[in-house]
Amino acid sequence: MNETVTVRTQKIKSNHAKRRLCVFLVLTALLLLTALFSMQLAPYDPYAQNLEEAMQPPSVRHIMGTDQHGRDMFSRVLVGGRTSIFATLALVAVISVFGTCVGTLCGYYGGKLDSVIMRISDVCLAFPGLVFAMAVAALLGGGISNAVLALAVVSWPKYSRVARSQTLALKDGPFISAVRLAGSSSIQVVSRHILPNILGPILVTAMLDIGTMMMELAGLSFLGLGAVPPTAEWGNMMSTGRSMLQMYPWIVLSPGIGIFISVVLFNLLGDTVRDYLDPRNSRSR
């Protein structure tokens, strides 16, 4: 009796997680599609200036108003989303792949290389990330790709730490010994057996990181270290509107809404993926 109850609650829970995952996957797909086709979806040219219509409050014609050059804010938020979202995804992809490779190799082979690389990553982790990224970005100069590079330089250690600790936990386990006895080379052991087994935690870290990275990237742009005007990008749009916040708040608020929606959505998706991959859920799946 008791057992059936547990089994049922488990099933309900896992169904719940599955439904949530579906909902957030669809919403994220919508967000990505909007970003992808933003040029086609935008009602106006986001770069066309029309000074006669500058600083218009939100209306039927311009649902998010216009900025100081008379450009339609809604179009700029849509197109800016493409820059922000895809730069963030590229950033997270680069650091998760690079960090995982480095961490797995360090964990598996150990020795001097491991000590050296882990000390470097300690240094990266010891600095506040954004401050360090600002220094690197300032060194590299403006542009969204340099901002991505700067954040990548300071953010990969998180992944290498996770990958390393997971690899260390696995590598002396009995199944890795068995695989080695089957005559597999080290590369085969790592690629066929270690990587697939540590992918879960890495994936969750990456999903939860998308929101943070989006904020940091927008932060760099806000400080003038990312995308340069006139490129539409949420961070620098907020930055240009900052001085007009009291009189024309929609110039700051519209890209803010964009950041808010995407960050919340990616965080919720990350949480759901984590719940879904939770081993306590997997038995009844």
């Binding site: 386990g173 009995p174 199944f175 010994s177 068995a178 695989v179 006895l181 089957a182 005559g183 057996h193 697939p196 087994n197």
Partner: peptide, 18 residues
Amino acid sequence: YQQLQMVFQNPVGSFDPR
């Protein structure tokens, strides 16, 4: 390893769970 093989103490743990 073509001539020498081993059976481990923990049967379930000696197989890759994935």
